[in-house]
Amino acid sequence: MFKVVEKFISINGEGRLSGQLAVFIRFAGCNLDCSFCDTRWANEKDVDYELMTKEDIYKYIKFTKVKNITLTGGEPLLQERIMELLEYLSKDEYLLVEIETNGSIDLKKFSRIEKNRPKFTMDYKLMSSNMEDKMVIDNFKYLNKNDTVKFVVGTIDDLNKAKYLIDKYELTNKTNVYLSPVFGEIDMNEIVEFMKNNKMNEVTLQIQLHKVIWHPDKKGV
């Protein structure tokens, strides 16, 4: 059984499918406590949740008739038997399943799903998150061009570290690389100037579209 705190249809607010319809399944619980967390409510021990089987989740997804699926949290990969759910969903080749993961969970075993592997959108939490020491650097090995690594930046120091990692691990040759500003913490003009000054080819600046369309704290969007 999986602890689901929200399930809804909206548009993808971030990543390669930004602006496209998606079904969101939000799971309870997280192992991090980022300074800028915008879903902290979903991580509380007493949060209300619905217990769903993998069949329940699949039935709901099929009922929506939406093909993009985003598994999010919290941290979805902490759910017990999450591998069973991922393998179960991968059997339906019509679905495009994306996992939003926080960068602290080893992706090795999940990357080995052979058929219709889910796409990873993996955060790398930088210094301003206060969680950088929890990041699993080896995860860069398991990302490919179907996946995305997202550097969440709140300061110029964050940008400098992101550039260092992008260059050191040649990430633009391996996967899709995004810079995502912490909402309200850094001027996006600064990020653009940084990208220009450092010739950051094949790196994408993204904004959290759902926070522009709706109130930043609104749930279910």
Rank of each mutant, 00 (worst) to 15 (best):
F63V: 01
T72M: 07
F183C: 04
S180I: 11
E193C: 05
T39G: 11
N197T: 02
I25M: 03
S180C: 14
K218Y: 14
C30A: 10
F183H: 14
K199A: 08
V153R: 08
V97T: 15
V5W: 03
F110T: 05
N201R: 14
D147Y: 05
V23S: 01
D157P: 00
E80C: 00
Q208C: 07
K196G: 00
I25Q: 01
G19S: 13
E100M: 05
D33T: 11
F151Q: 08
E132C: 12
L107F: 14
E190P: 01
E93V: 10
F63A: 06
S35A: 13
T121D: 01
Q79K: 06
F36M: 03
E132T: 15
F27Y: 06
L85S: 06
M200I: 06
M127G: 02
K45V: 06
T70P: 02
S18F: 00
N102G: 09
V5D: 07
K115I: 14
A28W: 08
E190G: 01
L143Q: 02
E14N: 08
E193K: 15
N43L: 01
M131L: 06
K67W: 00
I213R: 06
V221T: 10
L96S: 04
F27R: 09
Q206R: 12
N139Q: 14
I207A: 09
D158K: 03
G15W: 03
K141E: 15
K196Y: 13
N68A: 03
N173I: 04
I105F: 08
R117I: 05
Y169P: 09
K109G: 01
L143T: 08
K168C: 07
S10P: 11
S128W: 09
D217W: 03
F24S: 01
K145N: 12
S128L: 01
N116H: 13
F8K: 02
D46L: 10
S129H: 08
M195E: 09
W41P: 00
E193T: 15
V66M: 05
E132L: 15
K45Q: 11
F194T: 08
K134M: 13
T172G: 03
Y178Q: 03
F24L: 04
N12D: 10
Y60D: 09
F120S: 06
K134I: 01
S90F: 10
L209W: 13
I137G: 05
L86C: 00
V153S: 04
I113K: 10
T70H: 00
I186S: 05
K150A: 03
M188S: 11
I11Q: 00
R26F: 03
F36P: 04
E44V: 08
E202A: 12
H210W: 15
D46E: 15
G19E: 12
L96V: 14
E132A: 08
D106I: 07
N201W: 09
E93C: 02
C37F: 10
L89G: 09
D123N: 14
T64W: 04
G73N: 04
L107A: 10
I61Q: 00
L159G: 04
F194A: 01
I105C: 02
D123H: 15
M1E: 12
M1S: 14
D48F: 15
S128N: 11
T155P: 09
L171W: 14
V152E: 01
